[in-house]
Design a protein around this nucleic acid. Structure first.
Lengths: 105, 105
DNA sequence: AAGTCATATGAATACTTATTCATATGAAAT
DNA sequence: ATTTCATATGAATAAGTATTCATATGACTT
């Protein structure tokens, strides 16, 4: 499978389904069906998206009987989410403050 | 303009043109035409992409005469790039090591 | 105010990516 | 070896994004 590029990597966070999967796995590792139930999406859709996530090592799989348990690569993912969380906090404040003045994007 | 969401935010890093713009601005602030020359892309394409970047406060604009000088929000961007850089370093090593064994994505 | 250079914008089209559906593979149990 | 449950995959279609082109706006100069 194709290896990492910046764009491939970030596209995982730029997609709502995959973002939902990531959020679901923040709490604890889950099987494919469990993820599907959790985020209310169909099995094959989940599978396709899991594939992209694991291609970038954002999640890793472990076979457990019939099930595949996916878990989040927290070491990478948590700091990223934290950074953007903070960025949004900082910059949306600014946004609101300046909304009336002449638009400079 | 629409405010920040995780997906919107990350889509800026998931796109090659915008990533190129970011990389160009890492060194120093540039005008639209300068960016265009730097990354070898047409003016309007650059403009459209600058718009998305600034909507998420990844870059900010400052009017200077006829020109608009765009500069990178380094406080947010640099740590993100550093994180993923490291992630790629760590995980592509693993990749190569395990390439021969049975595929678990 | 007319002209010029710089940038932005809207709408049509082209391109890429995601989803779906049908089906295949895989692991365990009987 | 056949069945069952769990997951993956391929190919067609749908949906979403990006690019382009023509044109508008904006800032300055004369």
């Amino acid at each position: 499978m194709k290896c990492l590029s910046y764009a491939d990597f970030f596209s995982n966070f730029a997609n709502k389904t995959r973002l939902n999967i990531i959020m679901a796995l923040k709490e604890k590792p889950l099987s494919v069906t469990e993820i599907g139930n959790h985020i209310k999406e169909e099995q094959s859709k989940v599978s396709h998206n899991l594939k992209k996530l694991s291609a970038c090592h954002i999640i890793i799989a472990e076979q457990k009987g019939k099930n595949r348990i996916y878990s989040l690569n927290k070491e990478t993912v948590m700091p990223i989410l934290q950074l953007i969380e903070e960025h949004i906090k900082n910059n949306c404040k600014k946004c609101d403050k300046h909304e009336t003045k002449k638009h400079i994007p």
